[in-house]
Design a protein around this nucleic acid. Structure first.
Length: 1006
RNA sequence: GGGCCGGUGGCUCAGCAUGGCUAGAGCGUUCGGCUGAUAACCGAAAGGUCGAGAGUUCAAAUCUCUCCCGGCCCA
């Protein structure tokens, strides 16, 4: 038997959608044909326009998980889409290489416990070599994930933040800051582990919260120049009273003066009752209330003046040992009066810095009090707690001391309680350019309100930026200090450094510790020897320098400010911030280095829990993509929720609807290809215009084309607004509802025929589908690049050899307004409602859809009638009725004769009585259905033509009814002839039994 | 402890700005139907005190307040 269709299409388009195989093919295709490289060149040459881009560099200290993969998908989506629109985008990779996370990873691998051990046992040179090795290990993971995902980022042009050429340009940022007086030395409070003798990053502090025991101390401080009046204060860190400088109250809250015996205590009003109960004071009376503001400037007697002589000196300075107002004071716990120790707390420190109060930090590297702390000298900070309590008790200032258990940060390695210490550090005085920073940030487009507000409110805090770190693997701070005259100089480049160096560097010199530390310079001022400040730079400064550091001057001019960036919401205080600060300092302008910034929500597991190693619920991108299709993954991550929302990643869900949508798109192509190839459809000859000229287009085709234009427009707008979930939903609806569910059933019968008389009509349908599916494939390309490329190769280039070599070289579709027909769209909406009503009425009367009925009556307003009349052919076909009548007003009807269904002002009546001819046709279609399923079961393809179909053991009456329709049935099921038998014995065949309305029927085919 | 986001059928989400029809959609379940591109599709049913409480209002998922739970960021 000759097949209707050529074998070709089946070779390309397998029966099933098998994305993993298809994606492998396409990956190879891209690689072998250098598609990504050629795409970049093509858009560069076309000179259409440039959109700057700079890669937010992933830190190479871990493997990418699905959340990272989601981010990469959004970046790639934007790149492919904008490229198709014609823009040239420098989509070049970048890697964040330095910093504490990398160091810790290496320390762990080398089995080193702390910094001191590291320096003694391993040495800086080897340590740095190990850091570089680690980078490459993780880089491979990221590279593989990108390959699997189909991210077209250019790896050859990647920047690496540890390389000399990058660091040099980072130094130029610092030089600009130095020249403007925005870089300098100062103190800053950092979390410090006394055991490991190192400061910890914020992230590390977050790792180590534990429940610990601390003293809970209520004490009082006497108001100067007042009889028996005291502030009531609470603390869990008694030792900080040694470094106490001020008391803070909340300015807008009421404070109470409480009379107890002949003494007065001052505390926040709302806590009086609770605190008195706590202190077991029964007889007390609130004598007066004052606002926090009124307490400002009140001086108090610092209790340790005798024990700590230095404090006695400081007492003379403005603000010292007085009350200040601060918004951060929490009035809902304790007494609402907090004591400030600027050397031991960040808020305290900032409060002091604001008022130029000196920072008193009498500690050595091991957190022991120095000689400057008088009686406390030599004591480890936390060991001073009991001595402090003793002195307070002796002076009669102690009210209560007990033990509390509470959550407190500890060192995640040694589990020691952390201490907050002000240390000498280098700062960018970003507070001085804060206005410009905020102004710049306000001009940026964020797409969604909430991350925007979050970012702006963070920026408005305008804190100085501490950029120095006492670590090893980082870009060195390029400041040298004269050992004689203390003159400082900032070196702006490697060249400058080598020129000024007193001795030539070793051959393996690079811009890292320990090499840079070995170079000493000659002082310009006094000719003395200059040594480098031993710090490295905050790794955030390192990555924040990239818009300038990763480009040449020329490229920087061309690409920065970049057009669009997207990173996780956790980068609000990270990269988004440092990019902005450094750019404002570098340029001196109120300008961000990015015009738009999309913050992405983070990823959690299917149950909404944070992904963590301890829970064992981390979904690694490479492991997931080993088994899951990249296209389905990409579609899923974009479709599931808004990009700013947290995504609860569920592999089960991934395999359902997203797979179905892509599967449907795939099968639509298969359907199209099978038919179009058979009829020798030629897209160049059989264009839409040709079809229109030959009047071969029907309303269904025009409707589909109109809906397509609407989709192109709306989808593009949604991409523009970064509403990726709504954009993909638009595609989903078009593929599943519009094309597959609605259009295909309307044209199916036209295509089923192979009559040469109706060839023109079939070609017109192919022209419509060609245009529609081809456009869809382009729209899908940024989301599902593999499937789009596959279809481009196997369908569009197959039928049209002039098509470009890759789908990526095509242009983005523009909506054609001329094809839009909103009236027709409305009419089809009406049609679909009516058809649904017919189905509903059929169901209520138990009339199968395949049974033709004589008549339907539609009751509806005139406009609706007109719409339906214009589409009457389609209605009759879908409703499977012979004729339709219209009425404007609902008439009474006989329920025995009519089935009805209604919705709003629409009603449909179906004539339920069937004459012999209708019964016969219905029966024929029932039988045909059985034959079709048998055909499928027996492995016939849709196009095989069978020799004979045998039906047996129908009752007398049924045989008589179906007889006139056997020829039509033969055509319908594609057989040469249909034979009716009374008895199975009449012919030797492989009989199959079917039930048909509770009667048996036997079917055989050959 | 502070700030932000979220809590709507078994699951995933829409609706909330600007209060107003019987609170929707998809998945899942059950029954029925349809089907030679499809892992699809159509109809019906079951399933919701819209996190809890209070307030404003003729009317609250929607506005206000308080609280609870989950998440993120920061202390």
């Amino acid at each position: 038997m000759a097949a209707k269709f050529k074998a070709d299409s089946r070779r390309w388009l397998t029966l099933e959608y098998r994305p993993l195989e298809l994606e492998k093919q396409i990956r190879d295709f891209w690689k072998n044909n250098k598609v990504a490289e050629r795409l970049e060149k093509l858009r560069e040459k076309s000179n259409f326009g440039v959109l700057g881009y700079v890669e937010g560099p992933p830190t190479l200290n871990g493997v990418p998980h699905v959340g990272h993969a989601r981010g990469r998908v959004m970046k790639d989506l934007r790149y492919r889409w904008k490229s198709m629109q014609g823009y040239s985008v420098p989509f070049w990779a970048g890697w964040d290489c330095q910093g504490l996370p990398v160091e810790l990873e290496v320390e762990r691998r080398l089995g080193v416990k702390n910094k001191r051990e590291l320096l003694e046992k391993v040495g800086e040179e080897r340590f740095i070599a190990e850091c570089k090795k680690t980078l490459m290990k993780y880089w491979r993971e990221w590279f593989n994930a990108d390959q699997k995902l189909g991210v077209f980022i250019n790896q050859d042009k990647a920047y690496w933040t540890y390389r000399d050429e990058y660091i040099e340009r980072e130094w130029r940022y610092l030089k600009r800051a130095w020249e403007q007086g925005l870089l300098g030395e100062g103190y800053y409070v950092v979390a410090y582990c006394p055991h490991c003798q190192t400061s910890l990053s914020n992230a590390e502090v977050g790792l180590g919260y534990e429940e610990v025991e601390d003293p809970s101390l209520y004490f009082r401080l006497k108001v100067s120049n007042a009889e028996n009046e005291y502030f009531l204060v609470w603390t869990t860190m008694p030792f900080t009273i040694v470094t106490d400088m001020m008391l803070a109250v909340h300015p807008e809250t009421e404070y109470a003066k409480v009379r107890v015996g002949n003494e007065t205590l001052i505390l926040v009003k709302q806590r009086v009752e609770a605190v008195m109960q706590k202190l077991q004071v029964e007889n007390y009376k609130v004598t007066e209330t004052v606002s926090g503001k009124e307490l400002e400037g009140v001086k108090y007697e610092y209790p340790f003046k005798d024990s700590v002589p230095r404090q006695k000196e400081l007492d003379q300075q403005p603000f010292v040992h007085t009350v200040v107002c601060e918004d951060f004071v929490d009035v809902s716990t304790a007494t609402g009066v907090v004591h400030l120790a600027p050397g031991n707390g960040e808020d305290d420190f900032l409060a002091a810095q604001k008022r130029n109060v000196p920072i008193y930090v009498p500690f050595d590297d091991e957190c022991r009090f120095t000689a400057d702390a008088g009686e406390f000298a030599g004591l480890f900070a936390r060991d001073a707690d009991s001595k402090v309590v003793d002195i307070l008790r002796k002076k009669g200032l102690l009210l209560s001391v007990e033990t509390v258990r509470h959550e407190y940060p500890t060192c995640w390695r040694s589990h020691h309680k952390l201490i907050w210490l002000a240390r000498r550090e280098y700062f960018l005085w970003t507070n001085r350019v804060n206005e410009r920073v905020v102004e710049a940030a306000e001009k940026v487009k964020y797409f969604y309100e909430s991350p925007k507000n979050r970012f702006l409110s963070f920026l408005k805090e305008g804190k100085p930026w501490c950029i120095s770190r006492e670590r090893v693997w980082g870009a060195p701070l390029p400041i040298w200090v004269c050992q004689d005259c203390e003159h400082k100089t900032l070196v702006g480049s490697k060249k400058e450094l080598l020129e000024k160096a007193l001795e030539p560097p070793s051959e393996d010199f690079e811009l890292h510790k320990p090499w840079v530390d070995r170079l000493t310079l000659k002082c310009d001022k006094c000719g003395g020897e200059m040594k480098r400040e031993p710090f490295v730079l905050d790794t955030w400064h390192n990555s924040g320098a990239c818009p300038f550091a990763r480009f040449t001057d020329e490229e920087f001019e061309k690409y920065v400010p970049v057009d669009f960036l997207t990173e996780g919401i956790d980068q609000t205080r990270g990269w988004a911030n440092t990019l902005l600060l450094e750019h404002v300092i570098l340029t001196g302008k109120a300008e961000a280095p990015y015009k738009a910034f999309l913050y992405q929500g983070l990823a959690q597991d299917a149950k909404g829990r944070k992904m963590s190693k301890s829970l064992g619920n981390v979904l690694e991108a490479n492991a997931v993509l080993e088994k899951q299709s990249a296209d389905v993954f990409r579609f899923y991550t974009l479709w599931k929720c808004s990009p700013v929302d947290t995504i609860n990643f569920d592999l089960q869900e991934l395999r359902k609807r997203p797979y179905q949508v892509l599967g449907t798109l795939y099968h639509l192509h298969r359907f199209f290809m099978q038919n179009a190839e058979y009829d020798n459809f030629n897209p160049k000859a059989h264009t839409l215009q040709w079809a229109r000229e030959n009047k071969a287009l029907k309303p269904a085709d025009n409707w589909l084309l109109s809906r397509l234009q609407k989709t192109v427009k709306s989808y593009t707008e949604k991409l523009e607004r970064c509403e990726f979930n709504l954009a993909t939903a638009e595609l989903e609806e078009f593929v599943v509802d519009v094309v597959s569910r609605q259009y295909v059933p309307m044209i199916r019968r036209d295509l089923w025929s192979d009559d040469p008389q109706t060839l023109q009509r079939r070609l017109a349908v192919y022209a419509t589908l060609w245009q529609t599916l081809k456009t869809l494939v382009l729209l899908f390309n940024p989301i599902t690049p593999f499937l789009s490329e596959f279809m481009h190769q196997k369908v569009y280039r197959e039928l049209d050899h002039s098509s470009p070599e890759s789908v990526n070289f095509k242009d983005w579709p523009q909506p054609e307004e001329a094809l839009r027909d909103t009236k027709l769209e409305q009419a089809f909406g009406t049609l679909q409602t009516c058809v649904a009503l017919v189905y509903s009425a059929r169901q209520s009367a138990q009339l199968k859809r395949r049974w033709p009925l004589q008549k339907a009556v539609v009751t509806a307003p005139e406009q609706v009638q007109d719409a339906l009349k214009s589409l009457e052919d389609v209605f009759l076909e879908l409703a499977n009725v012979k004729q339709v009548e219209y009425a404007e007003k609902l008439a009474a009807f006989d329920e025995k004769e009519w089935a009805s269904a209604s919705e709003g002002n629409l009603q449909v009546l179906l004539h339920t009585r069937r004459n012999e001819s209708l019964l016969g046709e219905g029966l024929m279609r029932d039988l045909a259905r059985r034959v079709q399923s048998l055909r499928k079961e027996r492995g016939f393809t849709p196009t095989d033509i069978m020799e004979a179909v045998h039906l047996a053991e129908l009752d007398q009456e049924s045989m008589k009814l179906v007889e006139p329709y056997l020829a039509e049935m033969a055509e319908l099921v594609r057989t040469k002839k249909v034979y009716l038998h009374k008895n199975r014995a009449e012919v030797k065949a492989d009989w199959h039994e079917y039930k048909l309305d509770n009667k048996k029927v036997f079917v055989a085919i050959s």
